[in-house]
């Protein structure tokens, strides 16, 4: 009896769906790929040190980058630069997201707002942000203001269409059912249209994070004396390849971290959207 019972539970515990097994295999595969990449990089660098194909000064290796990070860490400047970059991108991005949502909602809800803002936005949106930075510096000074505004501006431009299109794409039958259940125009917007657009808006938020980081780096490379972008230009002047790489990797890690946070928030917000199957055709 007990024996039979035991085998049954172990069988249940060891049972994994094909999708779960595939996910586990994929994960190990990806981690393995990363490890191999850094290993190869290091080995190639070491060989280059010996054979001098290119000047080793211009061939940073992972261990050298770690050494750079350690130097910045011990003299305490790493967190100063990292901190200020985080501050700029978080504040600028947050302001941008809020303005994009409010402005996008107004444009999607009122034709007059659409007529007022859309032509202006369409005029400015194709201009790369780099072209604006010198102007922003002259207008808003060399301090934090110009950088935060630049980041906010790029976030708004990127996100706006996701907000307006998302709201306009609300299924008409949902609007009909909401008004027949007694929703007033404000409730219709907040409880139906915005909710229905939210996944699309979040998609825009995730995309805008990338452009916000781009704006941050550009702003820090031009007219700044702190930040990860500043480390890159400063190190360039001294041929400190490892420092440049370290800053670039730090930017990448920071972005990945914030993106991961957004992804966690997204999956918590949109539980109702979870797919039940592993794609169009299970493999």
């Amino acid at each position: 009896m007990t024996f039979a019972k035991e085998t049954k539970t172990t069988a249940a515990a060891s049972y994994k769906t094909a999708a779960a097994r595939r996910a586990k295999r994929d994960k190990y595969f990806k981690i393995g790929s990363l490890i191999l990449f850094f290993l190869l990089w290091e080995v190639l660098g070491r060989i280059n040190d010996a054979c001098q194909w290119v000047d080793p000064k211009f061939f940073p290796v992972p261990t050298g980058i770690i050494a750079s990070a350690y130097t910045y860490l011990t003299d305490g400047t790493l967190f100063t630069h990292l901190g200020i970059s985080v501050y700029r991108v978080v504040v600028g991005y947050a302001i941008g997201v809020v303005i994009a949502i409010v402005l996008g909602s107004l444009i999607a809800s009122f034709k007059t707002m659409d007529n007022i803002f859309s032509p202006i936005i369409n005029l400015f949106s194709p201009i790369p942000i780099m072209a604006f930075l010198p102007m922003f510096i002259l207008w808003f000074g060399i301090g934090e203001q110009s950088k935060v505004i630049l980041i906010a501006y790029t976030t708004i431009i990127y996100m706006l269409s996701y907000v307006t299109e998302g709201i306009k794409d609300t299924d008409p039958v949902l609007i009909r059912s909401a008004v027949s259940l007694g929703a007033n125009p404000w409730q219709l917007f907040t409880r139906v249209k915005f909710q229905s657009a939210f996944p699309n808006i979040f998609l825009g938020m995730k995309g805008a994070l990338g452009t916000a980081f781009g704006a941050m780096v550009v702003a820090e490379m031009m007219g700044a004396s702190t930040g990860l972008g500043y480390i890159i230009v400063f190190s360039k002047n001294w041929f400190k390849m490892n420092d440049m790489m370290m800053a670039a990797i730090a930017i990448g890690l920071l972005y990945s971290l914030m993106f991961a946070i957004l992804t966690v928030v997204e999956s918590a917000l949109f539980k109702w959207k979870k797919e039940t199957t592993g794609g169009a055709v299970e493999k």
């Binding site: 949902l174 009909r176 059912s177 027949s180 007694g182 229905s196 949109f270």
Partner: peptide, 15 residues
Amino acid sequence: AERGVVFQQHALFPW
């Protein structure tokens, strides 16, 4: 709200 409607496609709020 005094005239409730049931649609062919259920029209439930997915969220």
